[in-house]
Design a protein around this nucleic acid. Structure first.
Lengths: 195, 195
DNA sequence: CCCCTTTGTTACCGTCTGGTAACCATGTGT
DNA sequence: ACACATGGTTACCAGACGGTAACAAAGGGG
């Protein structure tokens, strides 16, 4: 059906299609056949480029997680003060989410949390961001663990608002969304009282 | 191997075992055989009490989700003011999480978000709580949708901090945890500026 | 024009899993 | 002691899925 493609083009195409299918059906409910078919190709072609279903999925997770971390990292690095870091971080996050809906689904709305290797990739993103946030908490009398705990809370805000945003198709751009949510987060962080 | 049990006792036992196994392995990676074996029984016994794997899983979701909603609802209903509602709600939530680790895993760390029916049960919990929180936001100039958006943010805080709490085995009781997190959330909500 | 590499297909295997049919065991009321 | 409802087991089926071996077709360089 589809034209022949050199490996250097076939591989990324397969990754692309796989992301789309996985993001709709999830890891377990997606068969290698489904992916191959969606790519207009047969199963063995898939196995010419990826050694196993897990490996294919993992590669997607790594690529998506890496890009997200990168985007958020760059955005916060280029911000003037802590308040701006929070807002820029959220904006980069939400922008990434709209531009990579599939990636978001695969990373945070999938079966990711049941598998050690899959989970590791998700945690890389979460802890990375949480660590950055933890450094913005300047209140006295808070142990590092508690700082990190609250930082994970902020990460939770972005995850769940993103899901709600996508699912209910809210009429908001990433920038507006970020402004709104950053205000909540920043007010929360700033309003902490010393122990 | 195990003694014979009347149906009225076998059924709850099976539910109990199923929750434990599902919470460790997840829906897809758990076979009916695994559950039967863990209960000291064979597969057909399971099918005498539950029509299908899905039905069994759904019953667990409903039971767990119902209990969580109930606990949080009761706690917030008995609180004096909004600030106390937030804290009492979080405490009930975290208390439920420690006392129902399996339930938490099954509801929020599973393959739940890929299946319409499963997802519906999770959303029942999330929207229920989010709606309650949305009513506590009193800032002028915020549309109901934005209020709900922020409310989902607060829900996100509890979900992700819970995961971090369980995974890293933090040395904190539910009450302390709630106090800490409620402060973050409340400060965030109170600190919102009018548009 | 032919060979050889690259790309793709057909056909298959072994295994696992949800689900069921048919059969045994146990104990209680009469 | 016996019948009968209840609880439990063995053995199996059909389908799906990950993965592979063996083979076909395309196409470019000598």
């Amino acid at each position: 059906m589809s034209a022949r493609l050199p490996a250097a083009e076939r591989r990324p195409q397969l990754l692309d299609v796989a992301l789309e299918v996985f993001s709709r059906t999830g890891f377990h409910e997606t068969s290698m056949n489904d992916i191959a078919e969606a790519a207009g190709v047969t199963k063995p072609v898939l196995y010419q480029h990826f050694p196993s279903k897990r490996a294919l999925f993992l590669e997607l997770l790594r690529e998506m997680g890496g890009r997200l971390r990168e985007d958020v990292g760059k955005a916060t690095a280029g911000a003037a003060g802590p308040r701006q870091q929070v807002e820029a971080g959220f904006e980069a996050y939400f922008r990434w989410v709209t531009e990579n809906r599939g990636g978001f689904q695969v990373l945070f709305a999938g079966d990711t949390r049941r598998d050690r290797e899959f989970l590791a990739e998700v945690l890389k993103v979460e802890t990375d961001i949480a660590d950055a946030i933890a450094e913005l908490i300047v209140v006295d009398g808070l142990s590092p663990e508690r700082r990190r705990l609250l930082a994970y809370g902020i990460v939770g805000i972005s995850e769940v608002t993103s899901r709600h945003w996508l699912a209910d198709d809210l009429d908001l751009g990433p920038t507006e969304l970020a402004a709104q949510v950053a205000e909540l987060a920043w007010a929360g962080l700033r309003g902490l009282r010393p122990a």
